[in-house]
């Protein structure tokens, strides 16, 4: 496979994952803003910080109000991470790698781009926002379904999956990090109103407010949620899950290598840090420091994959 094609597949699926994550963040923020109006400004700010878009946002807007944030994250063509922008980039990459995709995957991405460009090209009144977010998520599901249902499990598939999980690991780590202060195990906070709101946002941001209750027979509390989002191997957005998938896909790609590629070794190290440990040791290490190092390691793995598989040179 061409290095360029591998890169196109990887970035196509990073973009698609980012679109979905952004839609989910907006959904969680919107819900909190509706139900707890006093904290709306702070809530929207944390959404922007989580998207790593604070500087770009503040260059354009002065206040963190619902209308501006939603527009910026979903529709703003000047924001390279807005859903509109990343869907265009996903589709451009899909055109670039057209020969590596099944007709079903190509058509689903192209259709997603057509549907979302139309949807996000016009103003979205607040009453229509839930429906618009549902459409974004539904379109993502269609692409994912086409990928799983029609693509050969070969190196093409591996690069798609690597893009998905590198992006997802980054997103989940950022979500926890932005809220880390509410996850610090300070017994005096537990059960306070603020804490419950923050925890709910975190879980909604990763579509896990239901699965948390199924999987964890425990009340909302800091160690349980932290454990669930970082260490639970059953949770498809947890750091551990993402890391093990990255190792798995790099492993398939390197099956015939005599010596493992650096990216695989790095991913194995990161995955090792997330296995066989308990959440208390993470708190001891310092949650914020731990998350920063995961984000950094993950980014390095991404860059190493680009080099190992010759995306650009």
């Amino acid at each position: 496979m061409l290095g360029k094609t591998a890169g196109g597949l990887y970035w196509m699926f990073r973009s698609l994952e980012r679109a979905e994550n952004t839609a989910r963040l907006v959904e969680a923020g919107f819900r909190i803003a509706l139900t707890r109006s006093t904290n709306a400004e702070a809530e929207w700010k944390s959404v922007i910080v989580t998207s790593a878009a604070r500087a770009a946002y503040e260059a354009k807007y002065q206040h963190y109000d619902s209308e501006s944030v939603v527009h910026f994250l979903l529709q703003d063509a000047d924001n390279p991470s807005s859903v509109l922008s990343v869907i265009k980039s996903a589709r451009d990459n899909a055109r670039l790698v057209r020969t590596a995709l099944t007709t079903e995957v190509w058509t689903s991405v192209n259709e997603t781009w057509m549907v979302l460009t139309k949807l996000l090209g016009a103003p979205i009144p607040q009453t229509e926002l839930p429906a618009a977010l549902a459409t974004i998520r539904a379109q993502s599901a269609v692409v994912r379904g086409a990928l799983h249902g029609t693509m050969l499990r070969n190196d093409i598939y591996d690069f798609c999956r690597l893009g998905t999980f590198i992006e997802r690991m980054d997103s989940t780590a950022r979500i926890i990090d932005v809220k880390y202060y509410s996850l610090l195990p300070a017994p005096s906070f537990v059960g306070s109103r603020l804490d419950n709101v923050q925890w709910e946002t975190i879980l909604r941001s990763v579509s896990a407010h239901r699965s948390f209750r199924w999987a964890v027979e425990d009340d909302f509390n800091a160690p349980a949620i932290t454990n669930f989002l970082i260490l639970d191997g059953r949770m498809p957005r947890s750091l551990r899950f993402c890391a093990s998938k990255i190792v798995e896909n790099l492993g398939y790609l390197g099956m015939n290598d005599d010596t493992p590629k650096p990216s695989l070794e790095m991913a194995e190290r990161l995955s090792g840090r997330l296995k066989d440990r308990d959440v208390a040791s993470i708190f001891e290490e310092g949650l914020h420091e731990f998350l920063l190092s995961v984000i950094e390691e993950n980014a390095k793995i991404g860059q190493q994959i680009e080099q190992d598989y010759r995306f650009n040179s």
């Binding site: 496979m1 061409l2 290095g3 360029k4 094609t5 591998a6 057209r98 020969t99 190196d155 790609l253 598989y309 010759r310 040179s313």
Partner: peptide, 27 residues
């Protein structure tokens, strides 16, 4: 056409001269 023929679709920056031949950068 590349898809239907089952061959690679390349751009200039995928190619270079290697040992007197044109070669494409693969993974």
């Amino acid at each position: 056409l590349a898809d239907q023929m089952g061959v690679e679709l390349v751009e200039g920056h995928d190619l270079r001269v290697v040992d007197g031949h044109i070669a494409m950068r693969t993974t």
